[in-house]
């Protein structure tokens, strides 16, 4: 007699799996990657390759030889971490900085907690913040390396727009005066190409293209990026309306720094973000607020990495107390 399969319902499964999702994230990162490679040439390629290979390699070594468990590098999650970390570093970073960051990201932030799905903090951001604190000079060196593709384009920028503003304000200039000094700070420039910043921050448009892809493929829900951007816009808008000479306008705040990269790719990391739509809104608002507080009142010019990490630590609490909208609002008594 034929032996049939027997299992509880349902008997079919959607084509989705973890690997497919991770590949989708990489595809969504592709436009930004291409723009970076165009601008930063070999150094961008080098950073991305070192990041992806090191992350996958470290995960493999730890699973195979240290934990002696099943090796799960084929799910591509380590590769995504590596690429994201590369996109979060300055383009002139040396390869060994990337290597060190990747080891910390996977070895410390991911595997010590038990691997995929168990970590509290976004591994790529832990790697970045580790490097930022340990190598502050290298991590704020925004010199632009040579690129074969970009021959002839002026590449004089040595600081990020946010740092320029922060510095200028500290010297007693108004926002308008600073803006006039640096023609690179026009919105048009920032939307398409913004040299001065991390590898992945070059083009806001390329990042938004990635967001559209992720939304269309239903990899992420819009809640987190939308609430982060809205909160930043509202918060900075209030200050800007009060005093436009001391505070930058909302659009400037959204387009500069790592806000787009962070809200689209870093804050939406499944493992470290809330499970419910309501939780995602709280998380997004929290990230937006902390980012703006650090930008305006902190000593760092940019704060989204810290904001996301701080909110990561609140996620378990959000998951515990913020429940989804239940189908039945009332319970039948008796």
């Amino acid at each position: 007699m034929r032996k049939l399969l027997v299992s509880p319902a349902p008997h079919i499964h959607s084509p989705e799996n973890t690997r497919r999702i991770m590949i989708d994230v990489l595809i969504a990162l592709a436009p930004s990657l291409l723009v970076s490679i165009y601008f930063f040439g070999f150094s961008a390629i080098q950073l991305v390759l070192v990041g992806a290979v090191t992350c996958v390699g470290v995960e493999y070594l730890i699973q195979k030889y240290l934990l002696k468990t099943e090796v799960t590098i084929q799910d591509m999650s380590a590769a995504v971490t590596g690429v994201l970390l590369a996109l979060n570093l300055p383009p002139s970073s040396p390869w060994w900085l990337m290597l060190l960051g990747s080891i910390v990201a996977i070895g410390v932030a991911k595997m010590t907690f038990g691997g995929l799905g168990q970590n509290i903090f976004n591994p790529a951001l832990v790697g970045r913040v580790f490097l930022l604190i340990s190598f502050p000079v290298l991590m704020t060196d925004w010199n632009i390396p040579d690129s074969w593709f970009r021959a002839g384009v002026d590449a004089s920028t040595g600081a990020t727009p946010l740092a320029l503003i922060k510095e200028g304000l500290a010297q007693g200039h108004t926002v308008d005066q600073i803006m006039a000094l640096y023609p690179d700070l026009s919105y048009f420039q920032m939307l398409f190409i913004k040299v001065g910043g991390s590898v992945g921050e070059v083009s806001a448009l390329a990042l938004l293209l990635g967001l559209v892809y992720l939304l269309v493929r239903r990899v992420i829900r819009p809640h987190i990026p939308v609430t982060i951007l809205l909160t930043i816009a509202v918060f900075s808008g209030i200050f800007w309306l009060i005093d436009p000479t001391q505070y930058t306008d909302p659009l400037f705040n959204i387009l500069t720094g790592g806000v787009l990269l962070g809200s689209i790719f870093m804050a939406t990391d499944y493992v470290t973000s809330p499970m419910t739509a309501r939780g995602m809104v709280i998380y997004g608002v929290g990230i937006g607020l902390i980012t703006m507080l650090i930008r305006m009142f902190g000593s760092y010019p940019e704060g989204i990495s810290f904001a996301i990490l701080i909110m990561n630590s609140v996620v378990p609490l959000i998951n515990k107390y913020i429940k989804p909208a239940r189908f039945a609002k009332e319970v039948k008594n008796g």
Partner: peptide, 22 residues
């Protein structure tokens, strides 16, 4: 001898709730 192949969660409780056994 087995007469079917169980393909659900590895749990006797789940299996017993489903059918008489493999």
């Amino acid at each position: 001898p087995r007469t079917s192949i169980y393909n659900g969660e590895k749990s006797c409780k789940v299996m017993a709730g489903l059918y008489s056994g493999d």
